[in-house]
């Protein structure tokens, strides 16, 4: 079942600003990351989802309901952390939580207190005295205290210290574990690649690609560094599929590997290997490649879709 469904969704602000003809579906239980540089249209898309602004074209549904006509119903099941998080400065954290709990008709504040404890957030302090990180915690708390079916997070990890980031990851995992769905935006892939199942790449208001993180990982080439007892012959690995030699310094050779690792291991085994290091693909590099449109198609589905998208 799709939790969010956008169809030809557009918000045209004129002179090329806005988002255009977005088509995407977010499935129940997944973590969907909306990635793109600042100004690409991530926040615009999220504000369309929340009915804060109205589309100039197309439609968007959440839980199968129209985001405008059924906004109250949708929002009851949704938690949201804005990118530019502004809170009531004159309230304390606890007052803010009580206010939103009141609007959501939540009588039991125990879950909220429990999350606050995990985030090590002091609810008695006035919001104006909170650091950026603590405000962000409060934002996460108000978005998750009612165990929403859908979490919408606009640049959620910016400003979080590593410890809080860990709790944040836990909250995301807990949401999906009970069947909830997470939609988050980011401009830094490395922040979301551990938690996202699928990523949508948005560029200049248009979707460049929607792909699973797994497929992107496979698309990325690995970096293999081998150290030999004797320098292998120059042509020793030429015929190994997916392998190209990048650098060679005496006994040390650096390969780039796209595809299965086994043929290279078999080829390496013909020589005396002193040390071997295989780096996991860095999605950041893949994305940079995608952005440059540098990935060349070779029949691979993903490459094709990327090539088409770009």
């Amino acid at each position: 079942m799709s939790v969010i469904a956008a169809e030809m969704l557009s918000k045209d602000y004129g002179s090329g600003h806005g988002v255009f003809e977005l088509d995407f579906e977010v499935r129940q239980g997944e973590v969907f990351a909306f990635l793109g540089p600042n100004g690409a249209g991530k926040t615009t898309t999220i504000r369309l989802m929340l009915d804060l602004i109205r589309p100039t074209g197309g439609r968007i549904e959440i839980f199968g309901l129209d985001v405008r006509a059924r906004a109250v119903e949708i929002h009851r099941r949704l938690g949201y952390v804005p990118g530019d998080l502004r809170l009531y400065e004159r309230m304390s954290g606890g007052e803010l939580i009580r206010h939103f709990a009141g609007l959501r008709a939540i009588g039991d504040l125990a879950p909220a207190r429990e999350i606050a404890q995990r985030l090590q957030l002091d609810l008695d302090r006035p919001i104006r005295a909170l650091s950026r990180g603590n405000r962000q915690k409060l934002g996460l708390l108000q978005a998750t205290m009612h165990s929403p079916d859908l979490l919408v997070l606009d640049e959620p990890t910016s400003g979080l210290d590593p410890l809080v980031q860990q709790v944040f990851h836990e909250l995301v995992r807990e949401t999906t574990a009970r069947g909830g769905t997470v939609f988050l935006s980011s401009h830094v892939l490395s922040e979301v690649q551990q938690i996202a199942d699928r990523v949508a790449l948005v560029r200049a208001g248009r979707l460049a690609l929607v792909e699973s993180v797994q497929a992107l990982r496979e698309l990325a080439s690995m970096r293999v560094e081998a150290s030999f007892a004797q320098p292998p012959p120059a042509d020793a690995f030429l015929r190994v599929p997916g392998v190209s030699e990048l650098e060679r310094h005496g006994q040390e050779v650096v390969f780039s590997l796209a595809g299965p690792v086994d043929p290279l291991i078999k080829a390496l085994a013909a020589h005396t290997v002193l040390a071997l290091d295989i780096h996991e693909a860095d999605l950041q590099d893949v994305f940079l490649d995608l952005y440059r449109g540098a990935v060349e198609g070779d029949g691979d589905d993903v490459r094709e879709s990327v090539a088409n998208a770009l």
């Binding site: 804060l52 906004a71 119903e73 938690g79 998080l85």
Partner: peptide
């Protein structure tokens, strides 16, 4: 203008 309206309207209130 204070920027709190987005968050407020994400609550179930029309």
């Amino acid at each position: 203008e204070a920027g709190t309206l987005d968050l407020l309207l994400a609550n179930p209130i029309s």
